[in-house]
Nucleic acid binder design. Sequence first.
DNA 1: CAGTACTCTGACCGATCGGTCAGGATCTGA
DNA 2: TCAGATCCTGACCGATCGGTCAGAGTACTG
Lengths: 195, 195
Amino acid sequence: MVRAVSETHGEILAAAARRFAVTGYRGTSLQDIAGEVGCSKATVLYHFANKEALLAELMAPAMGVLRDLDDQLTGLTGAPAQEVAAIGFVDLAVRFRREIAVLRGEFPELLCQPAFAHIQQISDRLRDALAGHSDRPGARIAALVLLAGISEACAEFVDMPDDELRPALITLVRRAVEPVEPPLFPAPTTEDKDS
Amino acid sequence: MVRAVSETHGEILAAAARRFAVTGYRGTSLQDIAGEVGCSKATVLYHFANKEALLAELMAPAMGVLRDLDDQLTGLTGAPAQEVAAIGFVDLAVRFRREIAVLRGEFPELLCQPAFAHIQQISDRLRDALAGHSDRPGARIAALVLLAGISEACAEFVDMPDDELRPALITLVRRAVEPVEPPLFPAPTTEDKDS
DNA sequence: CAGTACTCTGACCGATCGGTCAGGATCTGA
DNA sequence: TCAGATCCTGACCGATCGGTCAGAGTACTG
């Protein structure tokens, strides 16, 4: 029998996710996590190299999806970029509500860690896309307000069903995003008419 | 005569405001603040009873304005409530950008402190007003997204002039807030129903 | 049976935190 | 000149943090 990988690993991961989402990364000690699992702090550090590695493994799936979204945005401009950024980010935020809650407010230091080295650049590109790559302050401000607000809302409405939260957010974004100027060039792809 | 209050008090307050806004409350040690002022940590604790008192004095002006806004909202419903909440909160957020940045992300624990005992209730009422006191999930979500997003945007765009940030935010809120249903009653001027 | 690899733990470590305290330095008013 | 108030500090404290380590317990394997 290979006894598989000890399930303790997964239990620690799950406990960390729960605690991080409530008290944040810095506000949660390894002792807290160990206590919730029912093991010793040393056991936590037997399964994970350090606290940072625990967080990195916890965020890995969300980071992967974020990178995928970033790839989809390359080359897009104007309204299509806004659309892809809006839908993609809302989906991501709704799906990874807990991970979003973990990172909430801990950005400044956490972003320095290698596991999240590119998250700032990606979120900048995401914001830029949502602004339709416009330089107008109004567009840039609206994009930031929406991205930050969506993150916060998803972290707050943890109990709301996905299929209630997602359409409400998408409707909001469509209404709130500053529409792009009439395209300087003919629309790059077939697009739907504005309602 | 009285030699006024030592200016060290004010210097500590200013240094704390700067550090808190960058590294957060928990992420800033008394040693950090003392180092920025150029005094000892004991001096910081001579002028302020403890770290919490330092934060409370820092946030006092913003808290006062927040309470004033809360008072203005009592009795208002529907579109007028949305309007007052929107304008009032944008003004507050733009004016107290640094204080907003301090509290960003540290809510769960900081809100337990007596100095901020009512901030959660006030922000709930503010959100409710911005939603036009509607029960629709879309309205509630939009209100939360906007309030959180505005806070984040103000903390982010610290260098943007007030008279550029404020109108952009107000325009955004007007566009994004879910409009209230046609008023059930003719616009109520001064009538309150519940207590 | 012995050997070994895996899992887990208590004890411990250095660093840092917020906070205390006795006392030095400086100034003021009588 | 001197007593007292004010301002400030170095040294110190207990608590907690992330992290290390030697070794105990256990289960497979040959």
